[in-house]
Design a protein around this nucleic acid. Structure first.
Lengths: 230, 230
DNA sequence: ACCTGAACACCGTTCAAGT
DNA sequence: ACCTGAACACCGTTCAAGT
């Protein structure tokens, strides 16, 4: 008599950091942020939960690594042309990854000085330099763009997740939001009520790029008080 | 013989949503995001964990409510003067609350259409209107500012938390980041390496306001191609 | 109407023990 | 060196039962 009636078939590939990260991305995509679990992961990888800790420090490390993998992929996909076009491409690339993988948005906050953020800073920074922005203003410019890109992308992703959680598609969701906003007290919320119409049929990606252009315009326009003649 | 040797003294005040929210804020401030627990909360409020569910739908509801309480307070504290000054004041107010209560940053993402976000949109929107921005461009302007404010504040808060977790003060933390960045490959990371010096002695609040001004400049500057003469 | 607290179905992380 | 899986110390949420 065999010791175990039906032993689990052993995984064919041996465990590795990369395989763990790939499985994590799948889990996060398919089941959301709360779907990434050491139990779910070890089941999917046909291993013990403790084995994962041999390749990965902890859950946070795992999340950052998954994030970084996607950021690297995105950066490699954007072609470098003129500075402004490149900035737009990087921005849109990040917007789209976060739209597709909403968990990237929240994970990306975690640590300045950590690789995914640094990669993005570098990419944008090089373009800001190419634009001829003064040395001592480069940091502010890059920081502003960075904050904007992550800020909008994250908010967009949050909305999508909210919609998905309630089984609504994009337009149903916007419908619901604009309905809720229409019911606000017009005395207390005149502005929000006045943009209800705009909310309903706006295009997130277009708005996003409009904001980028707004910031690029600010970067380009003369600092200080008076405008130098051209 | 008494049934219980030392019965727990009963709370003097009866439970209420407000008291629960106040206690949650304290817990979040003192012990961080992971310190908000129904068990910790019920102990602090001298009640059963289930009792809290009578006043609050679930943990997410609780988090949003705590968030909203602080946003309301902040909005009430900012004085309205000129449009741009008001925008700066609102922005700085939010920056500071999030700096002081880092968990507000992450909780604020959650839901468009939910009160704290709507409150902020309204406040900024009214100023954008007062600036005379065209109707169909107001939404983009407000959205950009909003994303920027939340984006930077959140990143700042994340850094502070990271520093606190490692028992470093601000300058030690920046020291560490700039050290790490100095070690990056200069061929791969020329930009990041060139701004290492700026990172070390920059003032977050000043940079933050510089970004706001950058965006306000963009909002003010003529759209389309050509500049109208003044 | 409001509160209690045990019970349920989960977590991340550790670690002695195996190969 | 790498893996196993039980054990530990937690979670959020529910719910019969109490007042």
């Amino acid at each position: 008599m065999a010791k175990k009636a039906h032993r689990r078939e052993r995984r064919e590939q041996s465990l590795s950091r990369d395989r763990i990260i790939a499985a994590s991305i799948q889990l996060l995509d398919r089941r959301g942020e709360r779907g990434l679990t050491f139990r779910a992961l070890s089941e999917r990888l046909a291993t013990g939960s403790g084995a994962i800790y041999w390749h990965v420090a902890n859950k946070n490390d795992l999340l950052t690594a998954a994030c970084d993998a996607l950021v690297v992929r995105t950066m490699n996909q954007t072609v470098v042309t003129t500075p402004k076009a490149t900035i737009r491409a990087v921005a849109l690339g990040l917007f789209d990854v976060i739209d597709e993988h909403p968990w990237v948005g929240s994970a990306l906050t975690s640590a300045l000085g950590l690789s995914p953020i640094v990669r993005i800073l570098e990419r944008i920074g090089q373009q800001i330099r190419a634009l001829g922005v003064a040395d001592d203003e480069q940091w502010a410019a890059v920081g502003t763009l960075m904050a904007y890109i992550l800020g909008v992308s994250r908010q967009n992703a949050a909305n999508r997740q909210l919609a998905r959680a309630r089984d609504l598609d994009r337009s149903d969701f916007l419908e619901e939001v604009s309905n809720a906003w229409s019911k606000l007290d017009p005395k207390e919320y005149p502005f929000v009520r006045s943009v209800v119409a705009q909310i309903r049929d706006h295009d997130d990606r277009v708005d996003f790029l409009a904001g980028i252009d707004l910031i690029l315009m600010g970067i380009d326009s003369p600092r200080r008080r008076r405008r130098p003649r051209r």
